[in-house]
Design a protein around this nucleic acid. Structure first.
Lengths: 147, 147
DNA sequence: ACCTTTTACATAGCAAGCTATGTTTTATTA
DNA sequence: TAATAAAACATAGCTTGCTATGTAAAAGGT
């Protein structure tokens, strides 16, 4: 009874999926008290760095599809994290602004994200952490460039 | 303009999420012609190894929740991959059996999954691959055992 | 034997991702 | 300038994951 362990822990794809779900679950547990969920994090980070961006600008820097971001922004608006202001020069464009509440959460939210990363890599040396991140970047690049 | 690259590529959680989505997308592209999607893979692998298992037995070996598996099995039944047979000794239990079609897909589907993994790790040496898998197993273990 | 608890599975409802398509406004071009 | 194309965003509909709760059957306790 050993050949049947086909994928469970020897497939990069399976492990990547499992690991990503654990990251998301751990982050969710940490930031739920702040009224946040993992999906809003990328948008928040981009907006904390530069408020008032358009949806197109956000899509450009977040590795998700436009429709995914549109849905995420709708939830964020519903939850009082952003407001949308119609652009004056272009009727198609809306600028996304953080609410005061969203702005006030930056330090704590980023802290929890860092804690989650630290928990996952608790027994990694600094060199191992660097190597791990690099491995992931390389796998991502290989799959993005595609066959 | 360099401090604003906060998470994009230096957060393990962000990279893990992005990498997992690319794995899933690549696998989906490969197995769509077979009428399969990434979510059914874990269940299929378990059933290819041993047909006729109960849902409880499957949940036990797949790192997903019972409700997630129930939904996945419902889609698999709809798509003609499995049939459920009520157990005679226990009215609560149903055994899950692969259809002939699902059985016939094993070699090709596993081949595509291996190809996807190979694509992601194309420029990794054998040692790097081993190390990468081990890193992921360690991160998973750290997050499962929890804080 | 009957009541309670546990077990096995299903369902509801949500988040976050995707592709495909709609809608409105702007830009281009014949 | 009128028709067409493109751009920006929204919506529909799906998958895959989750938690919480419902339901029916079996097990256990008194």
């Amino acid at each position: 009874m050993q050949g049947m362990t086909f994928e469970k822990d020897s497939s990069a794809g399976y492990l990547a999926n499992h690991m990503a779900r654990l990251f998301a679950a751990g982050l969710h547990r940490r930031i739920r008290p702040l009224g946040l969920s993992p999906g809003v994090f990328p948008a928040l980070i981009a907006l904390w760095a530069k408020d008032g961006q358009t949806q197109k600008a956000l899509v450009h820097q977040l590795d998700i599809e436009q429709a995914t971001l549109a849905n995420t922004l709708a939830r964020m608006e519903r939850d009082g994290l952003i407001i949308r202001k119609a652009s004056e020069d272009d009727g198609r464009v809306q600028q996304i602004f953080l609410t005061d509440r969203a702005k006030s959460l930056e330090a704590e939210a980023l802290g929890e994200a860092l804690k989650q990363n630290a928990e996952a890599l608790a027994d990694f040396s600094d060199e191992e952490k660097d190597l791990f991140l690099d491995f992931m970047r390389r796998a991502i690049a290989a799959m993005q460039d595609g066959p």
